[in-house]
Each structure stands twice: as C-alpha cells, then as structure tokens.
C-alpha cells in the first residue's frame, strides 16, 4: 500500500463523535432563529410604536411582573400538549421554589416518593450529569394531575425528572410529535420553550420527562443517559 493510501486510511478511520452533528445543527438552528427575530424586529419597527412593542415583549417574554401561572401558561403554550404536562410541573414546582441550603435527607425523599417510586432515586443518582445532585424528590400535583418529581441542582442550575402516570391512553405519537431519535427501541422526543429544554420518552404506563436549561443537545443526551435506568425503575403495570 502506498504511503498516500496509508495516510488516507488512517485519517478517514478517525471516529467522528456521534453527537457532533446534533451539536452543529442545534447551533445553526439557534442562529437561524436569532436572525429571524432580529430581521422581524427590523421589519416591524417602522410600523409599530416602540412602546406597544415593548409592552408586547414584556407581556410575552419576561416572567418578571407576571403571576407564576400566567408565565407557565405563556411558556408552555409553545410546546405540544403532552410536553406541556412535564414542563408545567417543572416550572411550577422546581423553578418557582425557594430551596433550603442543603438537599432534603434521603429518608425524607424516599418517604415522599413512596415505595412504588423510590427506586427512581437510584436510577437518577447513578446517571446524573457531573455536578448535579439530587436536591428533592416527592409526589406533587399541578393542574389536577399527579406527578413523581425529582429535582437535581448544580449551583443555580435546576434540572427535573418528572414522571407522569398516563391518562386516557396518552402517547407522544398521538400528540403529533416526531421522535428526535430512537435508542434501544425507545423513541425520544425533544422540544424547547423560553430557556427550558424538555426531553421525554414513554413506556406503557408512564410519561417520563427531563427538563433543564441546558442546551437542547445536552438535555437530550442527559435523558439518553438516564433512560434505561428510569425505565427499569418504573413500576411495571
């Protein structure tokens, strides 16, 4: 084999990280959205009074001055119905919360999750991204629906794993969502609104969400890492 062919073979044999394409595409799409927003602004500026636009921006994009419920409604209206379920509980229960300085004791978390769901703690702990630690775990209710909610924190960063028992044969496919990717036979879904990214999968009886303010590709990657453990830990119906 010639030196040239050896060289080609060696360089082309280098593995490309599987997440690179996702990372690049995410960056391009984010840039594209930014440019649309700025061009929309340039187009609208002459025809709209500055004050009216500012009022619109404040009303729709800023949480400050809004009630938590109207903020949640505004943000979650930008995602599909089933994604709204998980994102709403995250913002309601994890974002609008004052946390104690130290995480809840493990025994308290176990007690509040109940015997059916406390194995989720181990699944989350085992695959939590570096720097994130379990801060709180409990069962909660939001807008009349019950959730199993585990909250992880890394400094000011908050991440939720939200599990919702299915109601009325809910599925992401019926919610007109297309999987972001499939892994080990599980379909994963991903959406984003405001600063929140939500990744989700389902099994026969539960919808499982991971919500954070990390970039979309990282959020999805964290969900991929946790999914097998979570699926295993969920009660089998």
């Amino acid at each position: 084999m010639s030196e040239n062919n050896l060289l080609k073979r060696a360089v082309h044999a280098q593995e490309v990280p599987p997440q690179l394409q996702l990372r690049v595409l995410t960056a391009i799409r984010a840039e594209a959205q930014k440019s649309v927003r700025s061009s929309a602004w340039r187009w609208m500026a002459p025809s709209l009074a500055a004050a009216a636009f500012a009022a619109f921006a404040v009303a729709f994009f800023l949480p400050r001055g809004q009630s938590p419920d109207s903020y949640i409604a505004t943000v979650t209206s930008r995602v599909s119905n089933l994604m709204r379920v998980g994102m709403g509980d995250h913002i309601h229960c994890a974002v609008f919360r004052k946390y104690p300085k130290t995480p809840d004791p493990v025994e308290k978390m176990k007690r509040e999750l109940g015997p059916e769901y406390f194995p989720l703690m181990a699944a989350v702990n085992a695959n939590a991204p570096a720097g994130f630690a379990l801060q709180m775990a409990h069962q909660c209710r939001f807008q009349g629906r019950g959730f199993i909610h585990l909250v992880l924190k890394n400094g000011e960063k908050i991440m939720s794993v939200v599990v919702a028992p299915k109601q009325d044969k809910e599925t992401f496919a019926a919610d007109r969502l297309v999987p972001a990717m499939s892994h080990s036979g599980i379909a994963f879904y991903q959406q984003g609104a405001a600063e929140f990214q939500i990744a989700a999968f389902e099994n026969g009886s539960h919808l499982v969400y991971l919500i954070s303010s990390e970039p979309a590709y990282k959020n999805l990657r964290m969900m991929l890492a946790m999914s097998a453990g979570l699926n295993e830990a969920l009660p089998k119906s």
Partner: peptide, 30 residues
C-alpha cells in the same frame, strides 16, 4: 401555533433533523 409547526415539518430522513424541527419555537415568517 405548535400544531402548525409540526404540520409544516419537512419530511427528512435524518431523525436528528426531525427533532430539530420540533425543538424550536418557530415564529411566523420564518
């Protein structure tokens, strides 16, 4: 608007692209 976004999603073979279509909150005029 979300439904419109989903309906207007282009058919592409790459699952990552499909996800990216649904991941953003697309404004009208985009």
């Amino acid at each position: 608007m979300t439904a419109m976004v989903f309906q207007s999603r282009m058919q592409r073979s790459d699952t990552v692209d499909k996800w990216l279509d649904s991941a953003g909150v697309l404004a009208s005029g985009q």
